[in-house]
Computed example of a mutant assay.
Amino acid sequence: MTRLGLISDVHGDPVGLELAWSHLMVMGADLIVCAGDLVGYGPFPDRVLAFVTDRRIPSIRGNHDRWALERGPGEPDEFGGGTPAPETLEDLRALEPSLVLEREGKVVVVVHGSPRGDMEFITPRSHPPRILDALLATLGADVLVHGHTHRPMWYRSASGGLVVNPGSIVSVPVVESSRSFAMLDLKAMAVTFHDVESGRLLEVSPWPGSE
């Protein structure tokens, strides 16, 4: 199992989710994982959770997922998203804030914001190479996958470790979105980024200071 499909920040958009899933299946993904924020902003949280559950897509809990749980049943989303049904909230409650996978002798850690919390943004200014190197070393990870920023990124350390954000899937006018997903080849330790609608390859420049 060498090819991991990476998605994040679905935000209640089942159409974008289904498109990304379809492209990744055609591309030969062995497993698809989600870096959180399944709900919020978009109108169809129940459809998103049903899709993820039915297809057994491992996902973690993002900040919008956590906020939905904190609001509780029937409470409206202050960001305009659809109100999750009680069954959807139960599915969200079952999610963990992080996920560790071992594939092809590689350790992959999946978080939403950063390992320090679901609200921390990983940006070039806040996370230069020395910080990303330290995170990989502290976690004992070969790959760190995160989301939250809605912007795709990749960083390769001198030791060959990777930090990857696949970008966001959601397409609603109230939030910025890259409309992208990623494919991670663990054997080659390489990542590619793709457009949600067409599946076409997107060019994403390496993180400043990437090896």
Rank of each mutant, 00 (worst) to 15 (best):
L89N: 00
V100T: 15
P76Q: 02
G82W: 03
S114A: 13
E78K: 13
V111H: 07
L95M: 07
V108W: 05
K106M: 12
P97W: 00
R103C: 15
V100I: 14
G81Y: 01
D77H: 05
L92A: 08
P84M: 11
L92W: 03
K106I: 10
E90G: 00
S98R: 06
E104Q: 01
V109A: 15
R103N: 11
K106F: 11
V100A: 14
K106D: 11
P84I: 06
L92S: 05
E78F: 11
S114E: 08
E87F: 08
A94T: 02
P86Y: 10
G105D: 11
V109C: 15
D77S: 10
L89R: 00
P76H: 01
T88F: 11
V108P: 06
G81T: 02
D77G: 07
E96T: 13
P97I: 05
G82K: 00
S114H: 04
L101N: 04
V100D: 13
L95V: 04
T83P: 07
L92E: 07
E87S: 13
L101C: 07
V111R: 08
L95A: 03
R103D: 15
G81L: 00
E102R: 10
V100R: 14
V108S: 07
A94S: 09
P76L: 04
E78R: 14
L95R: 01
G82R: 03
V108G: 06
R93T: 08
E78D: 14
F79L: 15
G81V: 02
F79V: 13
K106R: 15
E102A: 10
D77A: 09
G105I: 02
E96Q: 14
L92N: 05
D91P: 02
L101I: 04
P86M: 07
K106P: 10
V110L: 04
R103W: 13
T88H: 12
L92Y: 01
V110G: 02
T83C: 11
P86C: 09
G81E: 02
E104W: 00
L89K: 03
V111I: 12
S114Y: 06
P86R: 03
G82T: 06
S98D: 12
L99P: 01
F79Y: 15
F79M: 14
V111A: 11
V111C: 10
D77P: 03
G105L: 08
K106C: 11
T88Y: 11
V111Y: 04
K106T: 05
V100S: 14
G113M: 04
V108A: 09
F79I: 11
R93S: 13
T83K: 07
G80C: 15
D77F: 07
T88R: 09
S114C: 09
L99M: 11
G81N: 02
L99N: 02
L92T: 05
G82F: 05
L101A: 06
P76S: 02
E104G: 00
S114T: 08
L89F: 06
E90L: 09
G113L: 03
G80Q: 13
A85N: 00
V108M: 09
D91M: 15
